[in-house]
Design a protein around this nucleic acid. Structure first.
Length: 329
DNA sequence: CGTTGAACCTGTTTGC
DNA sequence: TGCAAACAGGTTCAAC
């Protein structure tokens, strides 16, 4: 789940927690999700954390130039000391990645695979049970390259550019929203939430959106993302920020994860279907399906003896979620 | 160009 | 009660 708002929340937390700290040493656990583990061990010790930025769902932990070594002037324009320079740690949280700084003496949680000992006695730790995340140490030529494959920042994109990126495409709008080369940072939750608010069905083709709909979608997407950042992200299962605190935006969800519950606008029931290969939640009433995808089927067949008629009857509720969907506008 | 499905990985939920 | 299949979802890649 870490999408743009969650990553932004973590990045902010990290900024206030470890900015300016020097890395003394590196300890690694499993490394199959790290581009070049040896590079971490070789290049991080001695460097200071000079900045933490978010780029889509990535965090960029900027590192100051190594300062033990007298940087030779002849090698070209050396970056001003201390400022973002030659290298950065690219961190993607995947789905279960967590980062935070705590006293080095504290026992490490299970699945902690990267520990950076800092000069204040704490450790910056990366924990990721599923290891869907990614960590890479990249130096400037390659870093910039790496970032070129991403699309526009959803919070910065102009109405014109947004429309251009969506309305010329024949792919489904849901697929486009999730495509990091179209927009960087949107994931399943905020795609569904913005589509619900814009009253657009996820299976619509990008090219089928009117200018007005594209404009509306851009606006609802930005509203949803901004509000989510304000509320420190959505904690569906295990997201926590850099301080270990969960977010609150899950209380504002109107579509995501609400299958079978009533639509906040029209009181019909929220449905779920697989669109663009992902579970998608929407209100068929508010978000009319495009022609020819009427009964967009679910993941589906469990048994073949089920009396095919009672798909609307028994709906087991998740009471765990009940308390969370309450609202406080 | 687009879509689909598999694979990666493991904790949690669901089903029998 | 217990075990196993299903699920979850970000990203990439192969296949159609």
């Amino acid at each position: 789940m870490p999408e743009l708002p969650e990553v932004e929340t973590v990045a902010r937390g990290l900024r206030s927690a470890v900015l300016g700290r020097r890395i003394l040493s590196v300890t690694l656990g499993k490394t199959d999700f790290i581009d070049d583990p040896v590079a971490l061990e070789e290049h991080l010790p001695g460097r200071r954390i000079s900045g933490v930025e978010r780029y889509g769902k990535f965090m960029l932990v900027r590192l100051s130039a190594p300062d033990g070594e007298p940087r030779s002037r002849v090698e070209g324009p050396a970056p001003r000391d201390g400022e973002s320079a030659p290298g950065a740690l690219l961190v993607h949280l995947g789905m279960t990645g967590q980062v935070g700084a705590i006293a080095a003496a504290q026992p490490r949680k299970k699945h902690t695979h990267v520990c950076l000992l800092l000069d204040d006695g704490r450790e910056l730790r990366y924990t990721d049970a599923r290891r869907f995340g990614r960590i890479a140490y990249l130096m400037e030529p390659r870093l910039a390259e790496e970032l070129t494959r991403f699309g526009a920042d959803p919070l910065e994109v102009t109405p014109e550019e947004f429309a251009a990126r969506i309305r010329m495409r024949r792919a489904r709008i849901k697929a486009l929203l999730l495509d990091q080369s179209v927009l960087r940072g949107v994931g399943n939750i905020y795609a569904d939430e913005s589509l619900w608010r814009a009253k657009i069905h996820p299976a619509r083709l990008g090219a089928s959106l009117t200018r007005k709909q594209a404009a509306t979608l851009r606006r609802t997407l930005q509203e949803v993302l901004c509000k989510a950042i304000e509320m420190r992200g959505s904690s569906i299962s295990d997201f926590v920020d850099a301080a270990g605190e969960p977010g609150e935006y899950q209380r504002r969800h109107r579509a995501y994860g609400r299958e079978g519950q009533r639509c906040y606008r029209c009181k019909s029931h929220i449905r779920r279907a697989i669109v663009a290969g992902r579970s998608s939640y929407f209100c068929l009433q508010c978000q009319p399906a495009p022609r020819g995808c009427m009964p967009l089927p679910l993941p589906l067949p469990k048994k073949k003896n089920a009396p095919a008629s009672k798909r609307t009857s028994t709906r087991r509720q998740k009471r765990a979620r009940h308390a969370e969907t309450k609202e406080t506008d």
